[in-house]
């Protein structure tokens, strides 16, 4: 029974307030990332998001692969799945399919998703199952101590490429935007926390798979990697649009380049994605109408013992031999 008296409403609000989990409630342990590691900013943004969205910790799962970035679930006081290298996405898909009621987040590295897990990356985009996918792209293998990754810029000196990496780095945005069924693509930088937060929040509300490339600093192995963008705000373009994100006045003062970009325009999104200097930051593409594979698959899903019994009976009837020798 709902009590509409003033007291009842107040009590109800009170209870809601009680159930709200504060940021500390989502924190767990002390992150073991290096000082200045961009992963810390992602963690902070996520903990804030969970609080702001009023998510229940037990209804939320963070899935990851292996790498520095994939340690993130250990620092979230929610359910977490820190699996094997490269396979965060299919694990998350299985969880999503089994449990439409859970909030599913994926944190993965550039090696994890664009190298060993590359097949899963492309197919996950195509499946478009509802989840937020964050690739912490530090353009290096962090955990295994500095080997070139698929996104390392050409010439990157690493332990496996001491004379500089040989090939142009892979552009994850253009590749992602080339996949059928892509529905949400964004790029953020760990040092612009406001956009980082806004984009993750928009991604969380997107009805499909949202792919966020996070340009992530790794001071340990790539100390000067993003300096050209970090130290020169003119090398950054902030994307905005009335249907998408807006830029706060404070941020607008800091970053002089703003571009109004309609995220429903995939051709423009692809053009923007291929530009490295200045680097576009914000939502490149968003189409909320792309069908979700998890929904399609579960279209007629109501599992029950009765249904199982009925199906088995029907199938056994088809292939039955009655005692006595005639078909049932």
């Amino acid at each position: 029974m709902i009590d509409f008296s003033r007291d009842g409403v107040a009590e109800c609000l009170l209870r809601l307030y009680d159930e709200r989990v504060e940021i500390e409630g989502f924190q767990k342990g002390v992150p073991r990332w290096c000082a200045g590691c961009g992963d810390n900013a992602v963690l902070a943004a996520l903990q804030r998001l969970l609080r702001d969205e009023g998510l229940r910790p037990e209804k939320t799962v963070f899935v990851s692969g292996i790498g520095c970035s994939s340690r993130l679930p250990h620092y979230m006081n929610t359910y977490g799945f820190h699996g094997i290298h490269g396979r965060a996405l299919p694990v998350a898909e299985g969880i999503r399919l089994a449990r439409p009621d859970l909030n599913v987040f994926v944190n993965t590295g550039d090696g994890d998703s664009f190298s060993i897990g590359a097949a899963h990356w492309l197919h996950a985009i195509r499946y478009n199952m509802r989840m937020v996918v964050m690739v912490h792209d530090n353009q290096i293998y962090g955990l295994t101590k500095k080997q070139a990754s698929p996104t390392s810029p050409r010439g990157t000196k690493s332990n496996t490429t001491p004379r500089g990496s040989y090939l142009e780095g892979l552009n994850p945005l253009t590749v992602t935007l080339g996949v059928q069924n892509v529905s949400f693509v964004a790029q953020v930088a760990d040092w612009i926390p406001e956009v980082l937060y806004d984009v993750i929040q928009a991604a969380f509300h997107h009805d499909g798979l949202s792919f966020i490339r996070i340009v992530q600093r790794c001071p340990e192995w790539m100390p000067d990697n993003f300096d050209r963008w970090l130290h020169d705000p003119a090398k950054v373009t902030l994307l905005h649009h009335p249907t998408s994100l807006s830029i706060s006045p404070a941020l607008a003062r800091l970053y002089p380049n703003h571009l109004e970009h309609d995220p429903s325009n995939i051709h423009r999104a692809r053009e923007l994605a291929s530009v490295q200097d200045p680097v576009p930051i914000g939502i490149l593409y968003h189409d909320p109408t792309v069908p979700r594979y998890d929904e399609i698959l579960r279209a007629d899903a109501t599992h029950s013992g009765t249904a199982v019994r009925r199906l088995l009976d029907a199938e056994f009837d088809k292939f039955a031999v009655q005692g006595g020798g005639t078909r049932v």
Partner: peptide, 22 residues
């Protein structure tokens, strides 16, 4: 017919990890 799902994954590693996730 009983609300079950067959997912043809992109490879066997995905098939197995998908099942693990579920």
């Amino acid at each position: 017919k009983v609300g079950g799902v067959v997912h043809q994954a992109e490879d066997e590693i995905a098939a197995c990890t998908f099942a693990i996730g579920a």
